[in-house]
């Protein structure tokens, strides 16, 4: 499972209010939410992001509220994967549950720059800077988690697996 796209870089402690402010939470539709993604800190994001782009952030990404609207807005904005030094716990679960891949890598976050082209291979945990060929290795995402992403999230994964409800 591989992703390639342009890097959008963010700092530490990006909270869910910054990802999608609460004033937009009177709706649940992902595509609508995506229009306001990062509106308070990167008003150019929703317009400028291209399908497949990669979000790179520092420590504790997604801290704050449990709103699933946050990973949903990022996914529907077109981001293919989020790389961060670390993720807040609820965001981490939510991202996988809605089928937004996320991966932790200190090195890649330090090494990748805003606007450059990068690629991520979830199966071997390699993150590559396309521009200069540097490869940052991190822990691969286990098979069942990759299946969860492929299925598009927990709901489809449950429906398509042998789990009995």
């Amino acid at each position: 499972m591989k992703f390639q796209g342009k890097v959008w870089k963010f700092g530490d402690n990006i909270d869910t209010d910054l990802i999608i402010p609460a004033r937009y939470l009177n709706i649940s539709d992902g595509s609508e939410l995506a229009k306001s993604c990062f509106i308070d800190i990167r008003p150019d994001f929703a317009e400028g992001v291209s399908y497949g782009d990669i979000l790179v952030a520092g420590r504790n990404f997604g801290c704050g509220s449990s709103r699933e609207h946050a990973p949903l807005a990022i996914k529907k904005a077109g981001i293919s994967i989020v790389i961060a030094k670390s993720f807040a716990r609820i965001f981490y679960r939510n991202a996988f549950n809605i089928g937004l891949p996320i991966i932790e890598s200190e090195g890649a976050v330090e090494g990748l720059s805003e606007g450059e082209e990068a690629a991520v291979d979830l199966a071997n945990g390699n993150i590559e800077s396309i521009d200069n060929g540097t490869i940052f290795s991190t822990h691969p995402i286990p098979g069942f988690m990759r299946e969860l992403i492929s299925a598009g999230g927990l709901v489809n994964y449950i429906r398509s697996s042998k789990i009995n409800i």
Binding site: R67, E68, I90, R93, N94, I98, L154, V155, I158, I165
Partner: peptide, 14 residues
């Protein structure tokens, strides 16, 4: 503990 809506939806079922 806090969870997201998908987790909660699954808990309501199971």
């Amino acid at each position: 503990t806090g969870v997201g809506s998908t987790d909660l939806g699954a808990v309501m079922a199971t």
